[in-house]
Nucleic acid binder design. Sequence first.
RNA 1: GGAGAGGUGCCAGAGUGGUCGAAUGGGCUGGUCUCGAAAACCAGUGUGGCCGUACGGUCACCGAGGGUUCGAAUCCCUCCCUCUCCGCCA
Length: 454
Amino acid sequence: MIDAKAVRANPDAMREVVRVRKVDPEKANVDRWLELDGARRELQSRIDGLNGEKKELAKLGKSDPDAARQKGQELRERGREMEQELGGIAAEWQEIMDWFPNWPHPDMPEGMGEEENVEEKAWIPRQGYLSADKLGRGETSGEYMPKRPVHAADQDFKPLHHAELGIKLGGIDTLQGGQVSGSRFAYLRGDVALMQYALSQLLIDELLARGYEMFVPPLLVRERALYGTSHFPEGRDQVYGIKTDNVEEGTDLFLVGSSEPTNFSYFMDRTLDAVELPAKVFAYTACFRSEAGSWGKDVKGIKRVHQFDKIEMNAVCLPEQSEEVYEEFGQVNEWLLQQLELPYRIVDKCHGDAGYLASHRQRDLEVWMSGSGEFMEVMTDTNATDYQARRLNIRYKGEEGRGFCHLVNDTGCAMGRLLISILDNYQQPGGVVKVPEALQRVVKKEQLEPAGGK
RNA sequence: GGAGAGGUGCCAGAGUGGUCGAAUGGGCUGGUCUCGAAAACCAGUGUGGCCGUACGGUCACCGAGGGUUCGAAUCCCUCCCUCUCCGCCA
């Protein structure tokens, strides 16, 4: 949610943001909102005046109740009518506000879609960063990325899709997952499952060393939490709702698609002491997504599934800290990918592709799948400034003043997709997969081999 | 799931129909006193909306939402949450 005063002061700016962020102008209807806003304020001040009269009358009533009675009844009736009218106006006013996107960062690239995202960096194991002239819009860096699996000693073989590798290794079973839970569910087994454990340990150790606090949050949340981070209303179709016939009535619960809503909601309706900020936390949780609207897309393997594990990094900070935290999260992302020696690029998302309404600035980290020759998004770093904090009512108070906190979120490690990245980039002839050095300590193997022999 | 007790300001805690945005105590801030500190004393100390350049004014808020009433923190209804005992359970 943005500050109503700011829209009132500059409606043209909001019209422009709605346009470039490609928000449905019927939903984020600035003109209608301005009408409602005027009506709302006018009506509110009339109600305030009437309440003042009622107050005076109430004082009179204690000495002479009879005299106050008739006038009072009349005022009450008028007040009720006005309040009812206000209720309707305020509801629509809020409904439109809910679709106003956050103000974009002045440097957010202009553009209507992913082909206009701007490449910030690209990194290749043993080579380092690509020079700036090899970066650009869209997928400019792609042609400079490795054409064969980067960690294969012998490159003369036909690389396999991660789904096939997973089957050969006996480590990914989507068939039985489908039998048990339906399509887009999978079992991870044995060393592949162990590799996920190794991934989580690698990052958790790093985050703890950096002073982040670990959370184990609730995964079933009320609507407020998802509304608060702006996953509702816009992403409502991505979320599993739980029928709660067996529990308290009136408590519809939703499975989180990320621990971002539940982590940030820990701070809702609180005023935090400025000296304690930034508060940087992380959680390793399951995430649930309906993937409505992407039927038929990425159906092979575990790239797009209904349930996956993820370490999420979240920070609650002061307004002047959010850009710095946004950079720091990006550094953690790069640290992990470099530890794993995976080729990747970072893209600065443009207006038309900057994710949900809360985004003020957003970057994706995409691993280069050297086996299959494509980029795959594995992490998203987002500075939501005070947009979510307003909805969740997270404030700070310090000597400098008070206000709404800024919230920054980033994928620490999306387990499934990192596993895919590893399988793809570390594959060898015959379906053998080398274990990244950084994971060998936990996996206790140098390579994984197809089940049933070498 | 059964039975009971509660939710008031930063904290503790009063308030069961009017004069209550709310006693009192603690905390915090400023002042007096002191070489300094403590103690003591004095004053101040919530959030949000609207109006105003400002001093300020005004309205709302005592878990949430409805209702009764001229008037609600106080009465009624629904919901949420917390606590105690019993049951069940990883």
